[in-house]
Design a protein around this nucleic acid. Sequence first.
DNA 1: AAAAATAAAATAAAAATTATTTTTTGTCAA
DNA 2: TTGACAAAAAATAATTTTTATTTTATTTTT
Lengths: 148, 148
Amino acid sequence: MLLYKDEGTAMIDTLKKFGLRATPQRMAIMQLLQGNTSHPSVEEIYHELKPKYPSLSAATVYNTLEALAKVGEIQEISIDPQRRRFDPNPRPHCHFLCNRCQRVYDLDIALEDLPVPHQAGGFNIQSFSLYLYGECEHCSSKDDGTKI
Amino acid sequence: MLLYKDEGTAMIDTLKKFGLRATPQRMAIMQLLQGNTSHPSVEEIYHELKPKYPSLSAATVYNTLEALAKVGEIQEISIDPQRRRFDPNPRPHCHFLCNRCQRVYDLDIALEDLPVPHQAGGFNIQSFSLYLYGECEHCSSKDDGTKI
DNA sequence: AAAAATAAAATAAAAATTATTTTTTGTCAA
DNA sequence: TTGACAAAAAATAATTTTTATTTTATTTTT
C-alpha cells in the first residue's frame, strides 16, 4: 500500500518481494505516490518527475504503474473516461468524480457491505468498482458555475 | 432509448426533439446502435460504417455519441480503461467486463436497491456506476486460459 | 432567393497508450 | 572476479484515441 516509515529500504524490499528491480525511476514514482490522494494520471506523474529525472519517459511511468497494479500494491481506477488514473491505496474503496472540476476523491463507503453477488447470470464476478458522480463541496459552494 | 418500430421517422423525431439534425451519418450510427448489446467503442462503430459512408470520420462518431449521451438517449460507460464505450440503453444498469476477452456485458442487477447515499462526506452525489470484473461464461468454460 | 447565422462534417492536430529498440542490470561459467 | 549471456527495464518510436480547427452543409432571416 505504499506507506513506509523507512521509505527507501521498505520500497526496495517491496519491489524485491515481487521480483521487480529497484530502479531510480520506480523509486521516484513510488515516492510520489506515497500518501497521494489526488489519483494522478500518467501525464501528471510524468510531468512532476521529469525535471528531476530528465531521461524519464511516459512509457516508464506506464510500465511501473502497471507492474505495481499487477502485484496489488496500487490500483487503477477507470472512473475518468478521459484518462487512466491510479490510487496508491489498493484496498477496494469508493471513488467520486466531480463533474465540474474533474477531481477524483476517495469516498469512505463500506464496499464490503454492498450486496454484490459473486455469481450472476453465468458471470464469475471477481471484483467490482463503485464510481460516484456529482459535485464536490468546493464546486457546490460556487453557485456561478465556475470550477474551484 | 433507440428502440423504434418505424425506425426512420422515429429517429428523426427523436433528433428533432432535442434540436439535432437528422443527418445520414447520425441516422446510420443510431441504426447501428439499435438493440446493440456489445457496447461498441468509437473505433468499432467507425470501422463498421466506413465502407457504407466513405466520408465518415471518427470525429463525427464522437460528436454524435456525445450529443446523444448529453440528451440522455444513450449512455457512456467507462468500465474499460482502454477506451470509451457506449450503451444504447440509457437507463442505469450494471456492466460486466470480462478480464479475458475484454467484452462488456449488461448485467441485470437492480441498481435502484443499492444503498448508495445521495450525500456523503460533503459530496453531492448525482449518479453512480457499478462495474463488475471477472470471467464470462464463455471464457470460464475454456480452462486453458485462452479467450473465446 | 440571397445573405447571414448556425450546426455538423471532415481534416488536422494533440494527447494518450502501446510496441519496438536500446540500455542497463543481474546471473553464471570460466 | 570478470566476461558473456540472459533478463529486465528504460527510452524511443509508432500507433491509437481524442480534441480542436477548418470546411461544408443546412437552416433562418430578410
